[in-house]
Structures are given as structure tokens and as C-alpha cells.
């Protein structure tokens, strides 16, 4: 799984940080998403999917790698 975030769309709600704190953070200034790990470990994928689903700005896109 690969994560792409759109910081222009991000509204700084921090839902992603609560869902997957190892993967997402917020910048201090405006709360916009900071991606800590664009390629999360497999055991984080459920939390990352929840983060993407919760994002009220649809700013998180997940690219599933095909084998």
C-alpha cells in the first residue's frame, strides 16, 4: 500500500492522526496533514484505511500495489 495526501484539500481535522498516529501527523501551523510514512507496514493497513475513510476532505488516497 502506498499513501498519497493532498495537502491543498486537507482541512486539518486530525482524524487521520487519531486513526493512525504512526503514519500521520499535523503541522503546528495550520494542522495540515504531515505524512510520516508513505509506505506503511502491512500491520498498519487497517488503521490507514480507516484514516482514509474518515477524512472529511477526501485528502488521503491509497494506492494498493498489485502483485
Amino acid at each position: 500500500m502506498h499513501i498519497v495526501v493532498d495537502t491543498d484539500r486537507c482541512v486539518g481535522g486530525g482524524q487521520c492522526v487519531m486513526a493512525a498516529p504512526e503514519i500521520f501527523d499535523q503541522n503546528d501551523d495550520d494542522g495540515t496533514v504531515v505524512l510520516l510514512r508513505a509506505d506503511p507496514p502491512p500491520d498498519a493497513s487497517a488503521a490507514v484505511r480507516e484514516a482514509a475513510r474518515l477524512c472529511p476532505a477526501l485528502a488521503i488516497t491509497l494506492v494498493e500495489e498489485e502483485q
Partner: peptide
């Protein structure tokens, strides 16, 4: 108000 991390 302009303080997102404080809100969390």
C-alpha cells in the same frame, strides 16, 4: 482558532 494541535 488557528490552533489545530492545541485542539487535539
Amino acid at each position: 482558532w488557528r490552533y489545530p494541535k492545541g485542539l487535539r
